[in-house]
């Protein structure tokens, strides 16, 4: 039955070709460091799923942000787990992305013809850091408030444009309801859309060009 449905769909979508291109492509004999990209993708999916679940209860206003986070963590069944996965996953994202980047760098995998893969990957790292920076404010507790104060203040130190950047980031002179709302909007709409587009490009290039072999000693 399932095979019949699969055949019916394959006749219309040719999904088996797509499947083969993605999962049955030839790969060189590589080592465990080559799993860092997949690990990053896996954690990214975890972040997306748990993040969507968190938005079911989280409210991004100064009146409710902290209380709704406490409610998620202490009142809801498995709320502690969903939030915990998102919280620790955030750190894992940054660590894995950087390790993945280091692997690519030390193995020289950024070279021709994979420059576009590398560039999209570097932008992805910036997106991941953006996720971390905007997400950190959302619990609206003392730590997140002052961390964002410091973070935006640092941006304000840039020569000439600093004050302008600080005001845009905060949505005004101070950290306020406006800051919280724009950080939330950036965190759940702008960055995910950017991430999805870049991951699409990145994976297309990985599949299109293939991955590098482990460099030999004399290379």
């Amino acid at each position: 039955m399932l095979i019949k449905i699969g055949d019916w769909l394959d006749e219309r979508f040719s999904w088996r070709e797509v499947w083969a291109a993605i999962f049955e492509r030839k790969v060189p004999h590589v080592n465990w460091f080559y799993t860092l990209g997949s690990a990053t993708l896996f954690v990214a999916i975890n972040q997306a799923v748990t993040g969507i679940l968190l938005t079911l209860y989280y409210v991004p206003t100064p009146d409710h942000a902290y209380d709704s986070v406490v409610y998620i963590t202490t009142q809801l069944p498995f709320g502690w787990l969903i939030r915990g996965l998102h919280h620790w996953g955030a750190s894992a994202m940054v660590i894995l992305t950087v390790l993945h980047l280091l692997r690519v760098f030390y193995f020289g995998a950024y070279k021709y013809p994979r420059e576009a893969t590398w560039i999209s990957g570097v932008i992805l790292l910036l997106v991941v850091i953006g996720f971390g920076f905007t997400g950190y404010l959302l619990p609206w507790d003392q730590k997140s408030f002052w961390a964002t104060t410091v973070g935006t203040q640092i941006a304000g130190l840039a020569p000439f444009v600093g004050d302008w950047i600080l005001r845009i980031a905060r949505g005004g002179r101070d950290i306020s309801a406006v800051t919280l709302a724009r950080f939330f909007g950036t965190h759940i709409w702008v960055l995910p859309a950017t991430l999805a587009a870049l991951v699409g490009i990145h994976l297309y290039l990985v599949i299109r060009i293939g991955i590098t072999a482990v460099p030999k000693k004399d290379e």
Binding site: L76, P77, F78
Partner: peptide, 13 residues
């Protein structure tokens, strides 16, 4: 592990 806790989480209230 990821999917099952989502059910009581959503239905809780």
């Amino acid at each position: 592990v990821l999917g099952l806790p989502a059910i009581p989480y959503i239905m809780g209230p």
